[in-house]
């Protein structure tokens, strides 16, 4: 299955030649989780604080589905 990943707020340093927010298409086997995704794209788990899948908060154990938009963030805040 194919998913679309976006990383922000400094996580882009782990993805060569990608800037923040730039969609990264990733092929992942059926049943793959966010944890599997991070291993595949080489982002250390302890740098990821918020995982949004189609805009909903999910955990590292979430099983990804085809076509989902996955956004990864370190700890951020403001207001």
């Amino acid at each position: 299955m194919r998913i679309e990943v976006r990383v922000f707020s400094g996580l882009e340093k782990f993805l060569p030649n990608k800037s923040f927010g730039e969609p990264l298409p990733v092929e992942l086997p059926e049943g793959g989780t966010i944890r599997d995704l991070l291993l595949k794209i080489g982002i250390p788990k302890d740098h990821v604080f918020t995982i949004l899948v189609d805009g909903k908060h999910r955990s590292f154990d979430y099983t990804v589905r085809d076509g989902e938009r996955i956004s990864l963030f370190p700890p951020v805040g403001g207001g």
Binding site: F8, G10, S71, F73, P74, P75, G78
Partner: peptide, 24 residues
Amino acid sequence: HPVCGQGLPSYGTNVLMNIINEAG
């Protein structure tokens, strides 16, 4: 604290733009 000690000093409050957008 990761937000006060790292998040805010790196990008300021406007770091929120992308996460609020992604959260819809």
